[in-house]
Simulated scan of single mutants.
Amino acid sequence: MAEKAKVYFADFRAADFHENLQQKLYRLMKAAGCGDIDFEGKYVAIKLHFGEPGNLAFLRPNWAKTVADFVRDQGGKPFLTDCNTLYVGGRKNALDHLDSAYLNGFSPLSTGCHCIIADGLKGNDEAYVPVEGGKYVKEAKIGRAIMDADILISLTHFKGHENTGFGGVLKNIGMGSGSRAGKMEQHNAGKPSVNGDKCVGCGTCEEICAHGAAVVGPEGKASIDQDKCVGCGRCLTHCPMDAVYASNDESNDILNCKIAEYTKAVVDGRPCFHISLVIDVSPLCDCYWLNDAPIVQDVGMFASFDPIALDQACADAVNAQPPLPGSALDGENFHECGHDHFHYMHPDTNWETALSHGEALGLGQRQYELIKI
């Protein structure tokens, strides 16, 4: 029988005044073996979520500073990174994205390292990465700066998610590292459409399309020929009116599988380490411009080399908690959900799909040993 994956855990207690929580995270990383990676002179991408402006559930920049300090102490060159969003909001291009990051406290002054938006100014600076064993994705579109890094560390805020059940390590890496076109590929069949109400007929999509799929008709509105479209997403990233959009027509199960396949594309072939903080467990993603009350009490910090085991351990830890009174989880039918908090909140989701598919791809294993420090 294969040895279980090791997941390291530390609670959020600091009652003995021996160390603060940032020092505790540093000790957790050390105990989990992160220091065994050869960081000397290496570029290290710290993949995290900077938080949509208005949302207050995202991880504080103090946590990112601790991870960056650890990397620098080992001789590495850390940078914080994320890719632009598919939806229109505070992070759809690198300039707005950096403004949002700075607004939420992620600056070189507070974290000790720079922020780099991995897929560039308009979200189309991407690397095409083969997915070994991919069923739905053969070649993932990943933000170039993430693929240029020698080492990847994921720093994840564990929370609920309306499409995937929860947002954990796989969501942070797989969806989060996709370029705008990569995110489109995960959310739908891979081909965009045009909102005629927003389109002004400027012709930008027609000029940028290399396959003649985007055409401005005589009525002054663009349309996309789905037979000619190859799903590259260039029109989506260049439209000045945000009239080009992804249809979000994939099922949640297929979305979860694609996220696992994108994660595999990102982590294959280089050292990776994963941290997940089960704190401020909001019902929805940090991509929202607001956040609801936490559904359970803060649990602790988890770390592992195995992303599948880490997500499983965090899910188990949350599901073991009682719902917080007054939260979205505190409903009269709660006990009918079999204590699957995420399915209770989002009945159309099945978070286990991503973990099972990721395990089949060789990303890791769901069986784990929890080691408390």
Rank of each mutant, 00 (worst) to 15 (best):
A320I: 06
G35T: 06
M29I: 13
T164M: 09
G120L: 03
R27P: 01
D16Y: 06
R60H: 13
A149K: 06
D306R: 04
L329R: 10
G105L: 08
Q22A: 10
A213F: 03
C115F: 15
G233N: 10
A222P: 04
Q186D: 07
F58R: 01
V318K: 09
V137Q: 11
S179E: 00
A222W: 03
L48V: 05
E359Q: 14
D311E: 03
V194T: 06
G76V: 01
P322E: 14
V200S: 08
K135N: 12
P347E: 04
V299P: 15
L103E: 13
R60P: 05
C115W: 14
D348T: 15
L329H: 08
K372Q: 05
V299C: 13
M1W: 12
E359R: 05
A214C: 11
H18I: 11
F302L: 03
D249E: 12
P218T: 06
S304A: 13
I146E: 00
H114P: 03
W351R: 14
L103K: 12
D197A: 03
A14N: 07
H339P: 08
C202S: 00
D316K: 02
G133E: 09
Q186P: 06
N84M: 07
G165P: 08
A313V: 12
A140Q: 03
S179G: 07
A303R: 14
V244G: 09
L310W: 04
